[in-house]
Write a protein that binds this DNA or RNA. Structure first.
Length: 825
RNA sequence: GCGGACGUGGCGAAACGGCAGACGCGCUGGAUUUAGGUUCCAGUACCAUUGGUGUGAGAGUUCAAGUCUCUCCGUCCGCACCA
């Protein structure tokens, strides 16, 4: 090591030296080694938007810290990096700057790769993936074809946001207040044929296997469970009065059927459309519903509106006629597009009935001590049936069973399990995505592209004119021969949802350059599953659910052998400045590059890890960065000014002060190891090392140096511990300091330190002494004192007696070595 | 609207039902310095004199609650075509 440590801390030199070493030694290249346990640590790959932002820096620092820690613990660590390279921003950039999306994307990748390298992340760059590269997406096309053959994909009409001026389909985020973001035109809903993957076939398994994910945050599992939304209910028919028509509804509350006073159907329901032909007002109402944004959140906050169709439905139990209304909150795409309405026992139905003066009939009475007033609000809890003919007096469960049996014997209904989860629509009417490998033939229909013709390559030499995808007008791309009949046919011009690429990239990292197939069995069986996955909480549902689904599809294709992709999940919080999310539009971004230039990568990494625990949001502060920098300078100085000595540690020769320092060293190792491994909180780990530094610094300034004695040995031990414990977070500096401490080899290859139990033994402990739960004094007692002696000590303490005298002692609680609480009255 | 989380000093936070505020920032005072900066030392929740009060608000469970339960308020994430 040529770097002189007696000088001031110069991050640039330190970081160049360490990074040169890693590069020259190929330190982070990994391959299968069956003799060694593996650890696959993955951070969610970025969209190559142009420059790294602080959210990336945080995400990738967490991943790198865990990777380096696990390496020191003896694992063969795979930490790859790649690019989620397809997506909308590339097309926007193309229109704005007149650059083809491919060029824009690859330039961004080159720039961001350089930024990641500056931060010193321990990636195996030989495995780098860009999803927009044909070597990647060809296998996605191949896999889609396998699903096609298995009948797991299908085509159906589905609604999109249509911009009538730009003549293009808009993403939800491109619709602002019901208008197209560029044209300002009122957005219409339009139905077009699209491809779907049958995720609902796996709904039960996706729900059930959440139980296996004990390394996932509880909140993510709960969110997924609610998203899948399994419910059991009754599906039954209503007959339309004076007609042969019937329509089906689904309810989870069959016990309230006697309370049905109307039915509500979607604007696009066949009955509504039929009724509209002879009812201009209704037709106009239905037409108005076309301009509503597709997003569920907008739908839910919509003012509830409806209109009577004039149709009457026959109540299946009473035979009474109930009106059928069109309602804007009933969606054709959910269930059957029709619901039974029980205003007395459903809040939304209640509000609708109030608004349109529809009847409200109470049929459930609260059990127990509950009160309810139907005049004020719906009573939505379960209770006992009233005014329900032969069902009166039953509870929910009994009514559910008897009613489902009734409908079953009538042949007009059945018990069903329903999921909120809908099939995954993967078609996008965009250019910058994976071409869907389908050929449409007039005589053969939709035919998959044969394996030999894969990949279907996306043409990259394109120009954007602002209206739709360029390949939709590119005859050379569209015109082709039907692989089935040999006749003229047209290629599918839609591309895949970009969630497709990110649903399986973690598997491809195990064999990124494999050309003989989608996945290499040998690599996959060694590296998978991902042991640690790290990414933003915003991906808690969609990306993580699609990936779990894809893993099961891969399993059923024989490509992987496990049920779940990610053993342990860490969801990191956002990076904020001035209390709001850092974003370009807010103008409150902090550029990581400038900070690296000013303070070095180690300071940036350290600050990121020190400021908050990983799963909380992180509030940016410039002065906080200064603090991290100062600490690193101090660390550099104290170790730099120390001359390492070979003096062996002789426990019997330690004096009391040296024993205390040693206690601090080893309790720090214990605490920090637990923080890294079990708790995954790095701010407290750093704080603990800072405490050790403070103790060491105090020790060094107050103790007289005795060369060759135990002084040197305990200081050396403390310094080695600090360097090892910080090495995953501050890898460049620790690389240099390690050599300065006289160590052979690189710190990345050093073993994680263990702690000496015997160093942790304390002979005295402080015990909190409380009276009625309030702290009154602290007792200094021998460690391991018996309950009796703690009590005796408390009752002979002046302060305690001051608060107990004149009262009767009711109870005494003693927690050995920690606390005594005396309850008096 | 629905689902999920979060709310603690001037600020970022710690406390894994058992001593609230570790660690860091900032601030105040002091030392070093021609000065500024750096570095080092001491202090720093609030109110008051022994002591009292404090973890968004209110209730509850417990010997003991920032932590568990419920209600409310606020903020954030997701809501299926942003990634």
């Amino acid at each position: 090591m040529s770097l002189s440590i007696s000088e001031d801390y110069t991050p640039k030199e330190v970081e160049t030296a360490a990074q040169d070493y890693w590069r020259e030694h190929g330190s982070f290249k990994v391959e299968v080694n069956l003799a060694k346990p593996k650890f696959y640590c993955l951070s969610m790959f970025p969209y190559p938007s142009g420059r790294l932002h602080m959210g990336h820096v945080r995400n990738y620092t967490i991943g790198d810290v865990i990777s380096r820690f696990q390496r020191m613990r003896g694992f063969n660590v795979l930490q790859p990096m790649g690019w989620d390279a397809f997506g909308l921003p590339a097309e926007n950039a193309a229109m704005k700057h007149n650059v083809p999306p491919a060029q824009w994307t690859y330039e961004n990748i080159a720039y961001m790769r350089k930024q990641l390298q500056q931060l010193g992340y321990a990636y195996d760059w030989d495995r780098e993936i860009a999803t927009c590269h044909p070597d990647y997406y060809r296998w996605e096309q191949w896999f889609f074809c396998r699903l096609f053959e298995k009948g797991l994909v299908y085509k159906k009409d589905a609604e999109v946001n249509w911009d009538p001026i730009d003549q293009t389909v808009l993403a939800n985020e491109q619709v602002i207040d019901g208008r197209g973001w560029r044209s300002g035109a009122l957005v219409e809903r339009r139905k077009i044929p699209q491809w779907f993957i049958k995720i609902t076939d796996y709904a039960d398994e996706l729900l059930r296997d959440l139980d296996k994910l004990d390394g996932w945050p509880e909140r993510v599992r709960v969110m997924q469970q609610n998203w899948i939304g399994r419910s059991e209910g009754l599906e039954f028919e209503f007959k339309v009065a004076g007609s042969k028509d019937i329509f089906t509804v689904y309810t989870t509350r069959p016990d309230t059927i006697m309370g049905v006073t109307y039915c509500a159907i979607a604007a696009q329901h066949p009955l509504a459309l039929q009724a509209a032909t002879s009812n201009p007002a209704l037709a106009a109402f239905i037409k108005r519903q076309d301009n509503i944004k597709l997003a569920e959140a907008d739908m839910a906050t919509l003012e509830k509106e409806g209109m009577d169709t004039g149709i009457k439905a026959i109540h299946p139990l009473t035979g009474e006629l109930v009106p059928v209304w069109v309602a804007n909150f009933v969606l054709m795409s959910y269930g059957s597009g029709a619901v039974m309405s029980v205003p007395a026992h459903d809040q939304r139905d209640y509000e609708f009935a109030q608004k349109y003066k529809l009847a409200i009939k109470q049929v459930i009475m609260p059990g127990g001590h509950q009160n309810c007033d139907i005049k004020k609000a719906a009573f939505v809890d379960k209770g006992l049936l009233i005014d329900s003919g032969i069902y009166t007096g039953l509870n929910f469960k009994q009514a559910f069973e008897q009613l489902t049996t009734y409908f079953l014997t009538q042949g007009t209904g059945r018990k069903t399990v329903n999921f909120r989860l809908r099939d995954w629509g993967v078609s996008r009417q965009r250019y910058w995505g994976t071409p869907i490998p389908i050929i449409n033939c007039n005589s053969c229909g939709a035919v998959r592209v044969p394996d030999a013709d894969l990949p279907v390559i996306l043409p990259v030499d394109v120009e954007f004119d602002g209206s739709g995808s360029p390949i939709k007008k590119m005859d050379s791309f569209i015109n082709c021969i039907c692989p089935s009949c040999g006749g003229k046919a047209e290629r599918e011009t839609d591309t895949f949802d970009t969630f497709m690429e990110s649903s399986w990239y973690y598997t491809r990292f195990t064999c990124a350059r494999y050309a003989e197939g989608m996945l290499n069995k040998k690599e996959v069986s060694y590296w998978l599953d991902v042991d640690q996955y790290i990414g933003g909480i915003e991906h808690a549902i969609l990306h993580l659910l699609y990936s779990r689904f894809f893993h099961k599809l891969l399993r059923d294709e024989g490509l992987v052998t496990t049920d779940e992709p990610f053993k342990r999940l860490l969801t990191q919080g956002m990076v904020l400045k001035d209390g709001t999310k850092m974003s370009k539009s807010q103008g409150n971004t902090v550029d990581p590059e400038g900070l690296i230039a000013q303070y070095g990568a180690d300071t940036v990494r350290m600050y990121m890890m020190f400021t908050s625990p990983p799963d909380q949001s992180l509030e940016w502060s410039d002065s906080g960065v200064e603090g991290a920098y100062r600490f690193l300078k101090r660390l550099w100085k104290i170790i730099g000014s120390f001359s390492p000595a070979p003096a062996p540690l002789v426990l019997a020769q330690l004096n009391e002060v040296q024993k205390e320092l040693r206690l601090k060293t080893h309790s720090t190792i214990k605490k920090v190891s637990d923080d890294y491994e079990r708790r995954q909180v790095f701010n407290t780990a750093i704080a603990a090392v800072m405490e050790l530094y403070n103790d060491l610094s105090k020790y060094c300034t107050t103790q007289i140096v005795q060369d060759g004695g135990q002084h040197q040995a305990v200081v050396q031990e403390a310094m080695e511990a600090m360097v090892l414990l910080l090495a995953p977070i501050v890898p460049h500096m620790c690389h240099v300091l390690w050599h300065h401490l006289g160590k052979q080899g690189a710190v990345i290859d050093a073993a994680w330190p263990g702690y000496d139990e015997s160093a942790l033994v304390q002979n005295k402990v402080s015990i909190a002494a409380q009276v009625n739960g309030k702290l009154r004094t602290v007792l200094e007692l021998a460690a391991g004192s018996s309950k009796e002696s703690i009590e005796a000590a408390a009752f002979s303490n002046e302060t305690i007696l001051k608060f107990t005298n004149g009262f009767t002692v009711r109870k005494v609680i003693v927690v050995p070595d920690r606390l005594i609480n005396i309850v008096v009255s």
